[in-house]
Design a binder for these strands. Structure first.
Lengths: 341, 341
DNA sequence: GTGAAAGCGCTAACAG
DNA sequence: CTGTTAGCGCTTTCAC
């Protein structure tokens, strides 16, 4: 790996001039520039991003940090991909971190990203009132929350209208004459799940259906297993739900397993709606009715906000709320058990 | 962000001593160390990884680069996660790059990773004979190929035994009395798909079934659409296949769409086996017979190899071949069309 | 238009 | 055990 100095020698100019060429500075004689360019090519020179970062000012490190719960969750991989595509077009690279919803791990990575002098951090905060995230915001590093809000402070945020999505999913079930509608949700520490539950409850209330706490279950959003067990519990109930609203894709997998296990046929025996549209939702038998979140677009939007803030740290914080889309497919059609209507 | 020098002043020691404390160097007086530690805490000091990287020697940058085709492919997100978990335990962060199977993008990221002074790069090479990958290997940066081999040079590699996996999948179909078995594969430029096709052909030959080129289709492994169309073509054939071996998860989605579209019932009308086990495979109707690849473990293994090489750049290159597992589920059971047997 | 000098935050000899 | 000196590869004043 050759250095800037070597290029400077080769081209018979000062290091400064080479630097100017690298950075497309205006005032360089075309001839000189050509000479430098040729030397760079000859030596196969690539500027060290590390040195550039150390010396340069904030906002030019060409590095972004992303902390998500788990890249194996397809919703988050869509977001990550959206971010990366925008970053790529700006010549930025992305450090990707998985938190596993573990605050210690989140804090660790927040420290690392700071030590790496990233130009910005994008993340769904684990806790709406977490201190680690607060800390990084205070350092002045641009932060954008995606998927989940941060309640403690004003931050740029990209979220889906969770309440609305949950409301329309639940209303759809109610329109199908369901009265006993269960929900598999997760801890309200996550703003997204809290809001989804609110939307669910609001829909019930608006249709004069009492909220029944025994039909509300909180599972682990990172895997399917707790959801499977909770569904089993729900099915065992004296007055079991005739429909289920499941608040994310991983938990839906667990629900589906439980249903299969108990030989419940969808939608004949029970109707279901899942939050998140997944590639596999359409090829299920029956295809799943879903609330689609535009993960990729959310990622793109979040990245754009980061770059805006890098360019102008003074601008007002914004909160972008994207719209979920209810996609009705067969998993909520043709419900048969008359007594439940 | 406070600096090492500030800590040194605060603790009334030299910068070197602070550096020694940071790096757990042996010879530091416990009292001095305590004083430094206290100063660090007081100033909320975090060493700049950037400066450490610039000054330190190779192999201590605490950064790894990973270039995969697309993080939205769950197989690759498993690999990425495996890598990250190992890296996390060693205090490393990872820069994640998506190549989209685009050699220009692969080259771009290879340059970036080099400019970032990463300690190692993990990737499935896009071309078995690509020059960009060759270039980075020549620089001496540790490289580990995962999922796909690099043919041009000796490199540490972690792969699955693709041929064996494909062989057992195809044999399983043959055991079910299928004679006309189609394959949806992809370009042989990828070592993995090439080997899977070899395994498929070998199985046919070993069972005295002639290889029929009209039953071999090459699709785009990054999405489901070409596979959907190719399946439609296959079904239109005068002597359409009675079974299909599909060489990855994304293309299987396309096949399933085509089947649904044509009202083909699995396994009554056609049997299918997919390479890759996915969370959704079990909850399909019927559950899919699959060849499982331990993506997460492969990622872990690849990361371990990188760290081994960072520690000892002289050791022999190794090629780890992991075993695929055929998991028989209902999508290959109960085939009915007598005439096809 | 171009260069000289200084220094980002840290580690690595080399002394003592 | 601790400090001094030098410098990683680059960008940034400030001159000319």
């Amino acid at each position: 790996m050759s250095t800037l100095t070597e290029v400077a020698n080769e081209a018979n100019v000062s290091a400064t001039t080479v630097s100017r060429v690298i950075n497309d500075s205006d005032k360089v004689n075309p001839d000189t520039r050509d000479r430098v360019l040729k030397a760079m090519r000859k030596l196969n020179y690539r500027p060290s991003r590390v040195a550039q970062r150390l010396r340069g000012k904030k906002g030019r490190s060409k590095l972004l940090g992303v902390i998500i719960p788990d890249i194996q969750n397809q919703y988050y991989s869509s977001i990550a991909r959206g971010i990366e595509d925008v970053a790529y077009n700006k010549d930025y690279a992305v450090i990707l971190c998985n938190s596993d919803e573990n605050p210690d791990r989140e804090r660790f990575y927040l420290d690392v990203l700071q030590a790496e002098s990233v130009d910005g951090v994008i993340l769904p905060p684990i806790h709406q009132y977490g201190t680690a995230v607060e800390g990084i915001i205070d350092t002045g590093i641009p932060v954008v929350c995606v998927d989940r809000k941060f309640a403690k402070q004003s931050v740029d945020t990209v979220v889906i209208n969770n309440k609305k999505g949950a409301y329309s999913a639940t209303s759809h079930l109610i329109d199908l004459n369901h009265k006993r509608i269960g929900i598999i949700t997760s801890s309200p520490q996550f703003s997204s799940f809290q809001e989804r539950q609110e939307g669910y409850e609001q829909a019930l209330k608006d249709h004069d259906i009492p909220v029944n706490n025994s039909l509300i279950k909180e599972g682990d959003p990172r895997n399917s297993e707790t959801a499977r067990k909770l569904t089993l519990e729900l099915l065992q109930l004296d007055s079991a739900p005739t429909a289920l609203f499941i608040t994310n894709n991983l938990m839906t997998l667990g629900v589906l397993k439980a249903l299969k296990q108990q030989d419940f046929v969808v939608p004949d025996d029970i109707s279901i709606v899942m939050f998140d549209d997944m590639p596999w939702a359409q090829i299920m038998t029956p295809p799943l009715t879903v609330v689609r979140q535009p993960g990729y677009e959310m990622g793109r939007r979040a990245a754009e906000l980061i770059f805006q803030r890098i360019a102008d740290s003074e601008r007002e914080t914004v909160e972008v709320t994207m719209n979920p889309e209810l996609i009705v497919r067969k998993s909520t059609g043709g419900y048969k058990r008359d007594n439940e209507r």
